[in-house]
């Protein structure tokens, strides 16, 4: 028997690498010295209470905010590119085509004055599709996939319920077939029954499309259901990380023990 673990499958390259990512707001720490690698098909959860730095970290990873120091590498056409060392327009183009962001508030991710079909179809046009009939058909398929009835295709998002708006946002994000998706509290602000539907949908979509995802949540049940790995943040620092079930079932850090013991069993 070999003493050490030996690779049994060839490892593909990570799609996202964070190296010592640090974000300060003046004197205040947003997040401090965060490093990790994310592989295709993997779902990473970031948990922690409000103010723990999880959203700050997500904004850096997603290319929205420039970190104070550290580096974020995204693999594009086989080459790692440093997210904040490329021209702004190139970064914007990547953000549009290679990855997607699901915001907690669907209003931040949707065009509220454009029809549901338009919200989805617009992304197909970004990708270069020009044929109207094809775009509409494809938009229709996506609406069905996120369980929005076809006869709502010409309605505007403001006529939708919160849960429907969130599902529409997810369709809009996934349409261009991104390789990496960031989600900030994707089920926050929704009723529990609506949450369950959305969670199941996300779980299936992530699995079927094989995309990598980073999900920020304060809900440990959401983390357990959707993520493979977990990082626990407190005061801007990652205090514990590992396999999701390991971190939740055998927490070692004092703060993680506090988090997991504070959950009421339903």
């Amino acid at each position: 028997m070999r003493e050490s673990s030996t690779p049994v499958i060839a490892d593909p390259d990570p799609i996202l690498i964070a190296k010592n990512v640090t974000k300060h707001y003046g004197e205040r720490i947003g997040c401090e010295d965060v490093s990790f690698s994310l592989w295709p098909g993997e779902v990473l959860g970031i948990v922690g209470e409000s103010g723990s730095g999880k959203s700050t970290l997500l904004r850096c990873l997603a290319g929205i905010d420039r970190p104070t120091s550290g580096e974020i590498l995204f693999r594009h056409e086989g080459e790692p590119i440093s997210l904040f060392n490329i021209p702004e327009p190139t970064r914007r183009k990547l953000m549009r085509t290679e990855w997607g962001i699901v915001h907690q508030n669907p209003r931040d991710g949707l065009r509220m004055d454009v029809s549901a079909g338009g919200n989805v179809g617009e992304r197909l046009m970004d990708r270069g599709d020009r044929h109207y009939g094809k775009i509409r058909r494809s938009a229709m398929e996506w609406l069905t996939r996120v369980e929005i009835n076809e006869d709502r295709i010409d309605d505007r998002p403001r006529q939708f319920s919160g849960g429907m708006q969130q599902r529409l946002q997810i369709a809009r994000v996934l349409v261009p077939e991104p390789r990496l998706v960031f989600m900030d509290e994707p089920t926050g602000g929704l009723d529990v029954s609506v949450q369950a539907r959305l969670l199941d949908l996300l779980r299936v979509l992530v699995r079927d499309l094989g995309i990598a995802a980073v999900i920020v949540t304060h809900d440990l049940a959401v983390a357990r259901l959707l993520t493979d790995r977990l990082m626990v943040m407190k005061g801007g620092y990652v205090v514990e990380e590992g396999l999701t079930d390991q971190v939740l079932d055998d927490p070692h850090h004092a703060y993680t023990q506090l988090l997991t013991s504070a959950v009421l069993a339903a």
Binding site: T6, D245, Q246
Partner: peptide, 28 residues
């Protein structure tokens, strides 16, 4: 691999190889 031991190793057969479930990466 659900709990982490304070000490020790668990080698499990994975195809022709062995994986130490204690030190292996989460994806492994």
């Amino acid at each position: 691999g659900n709990y982490r031991p304070s000490k020790g190793h668990v080698h499990i057969r994975h195809g022709q190889d062995f994986i130490d479930i204690v030190t292996a990466t989460p994806r492994r």
